[in-house]
Design a protein around this nucleic acid. Sequence first.
DNA 1: TTATGATTCAAACGAACGTATGAATCATAA
DNA 2: TTATGATTCATACGTTCGTTTGAATCATAA
Lengths: 227, 227
Amino acid sequence: MTDNRHGDTRERILDVAERLFMEFGYDGTSMRQITGEANVNLAAVNYHFGSKEALMQEVFRRRLDWLNEERMRVLDRLEAEAGGKPVKPSLIVDAFFGTLLRMAEDEGRGGMTFLRLIGRTLTEPSEFIRAFLAHEYKTVMDRYKEALFRALPDVPKAEIVWRFHFMLGATSYAIAGTDALRLVTDWQIEEEDSVDRLDRLVPRLMSFILGGLRAPLAQLDPPAVND
Amino acid sequence: MTDNRHGDTRERILDVAERLFMEFGYDGTSMRQITGEANVNLAAVNYHFGSKEALMQEVFRRRLDWLNEERMRVLDRLEAEAGGKPVKPSLIVDAFFGTLLRMAEDEGRGGMTFLRLIGRTLTEPSEFIRAFLAHEYKTVMDRYKEALFRALPDVPKAEIVWRFHFMLGATSYAIAGTDALRLVTDWQIEEEDSVDRLDRLVPRLMSFILGGLRAPLAQLDPPAVND
DNA sequence: TTATGATTCAAACGAACGTATGAATCATAA
DNA sequence: TTATGATTCATACGTTCGTTTGAATCATAA
């Protein structure tokens, strides 16, 4: 027969699904693709997870639980070290984005595959995915926003949230977009600078988003009256 | 009967498809949705455009043709005004991204709907879409990269391309992600700061990406030897 | 060895998808 | 008015989708 050990069926499905969702998106990946490449029966996903949606959620939960706890731990440590004073913005940004990016160096935690999946999924259209991610992210997001508010007391909160958006966007896109970017820019960057080389990407991206965070505030006209 | 004028069937299909592709993505939008909301027969898309893929391409071509020509015109003008000297980076960035963002203020050119569609599509998984966009974008992209190379002669070209990526990412995400961002950040930003208010978004985004472009270069270890 | 619950299997289900077809209807000009 | 080509129409085709089913097979413990 095949080399199936029935005990790790769940894990094999999760690994394959993670990779295929990353490559083809949620809608673009069929149950038959997943079960085929995982060498399990078509019905196995529904048996072990209940549905395709539940599988997608489990793919994320498996990685996000650790990531979000780690983000909390790092911020806890930074705030403890600061002893009541606000934490430096660059440290907060590194705790949030750097933790995510460095997670990709650990194959046991999903590696580049999961990192790209996260990036791609943040712009996925499917309603249930966005709702699920919003719920998973809420607590951590609120903690980090509060930390940034404290760290930048002179910057309007709305501006901070905006820049958090922009940083998220640059990051998602950078990690999701290997292929997309390759096409758009023709990618004449040398081999050793490929996105696959995280040690090249991380410092560049961190430098960019920190530059954006520190940029002078835009001059805005006063808000128009609501009519 | 309905208020169908058979002459504008093509245009009505394009308008509806643009909106639905923006909202639900390419795979998530069915021919029956499109033709239903456009009040045309199911077969109309295949009759007028040939296929769903061809429809998607026409949705883009209708807007991108003007956008890319306008980007060329603006850069032509800037380079003429500079009279042989390099154009300032901030002007180049504004010519590329600002032209796109300001296009969204013109409902006749697609408005926010097309802007969001562009943003979302840059991370779409479908192969044919990415290939199509890469082809549409190639000429313009090369011109702008060259302009940036000339404007920043002391910055390694690879770094410039990287930061172009990051700027593209922040922009795509910001314009695509109304709903996604709303969820991720809980969106306690006041009403008048919504993404729908382009006059709020544009200066903030431009300030952010310019800050990123100007950020100090990251310190990199020398590239590892390829083995 | 046998009984039991967990897992895997082949096969099928109904629904939705993009597309194709040929007749009906329309606009236009001879 | 009639002939012609463009367009719209209702309907159906063949696929693929996610899911379900009931029997077969497995691991485990009495």
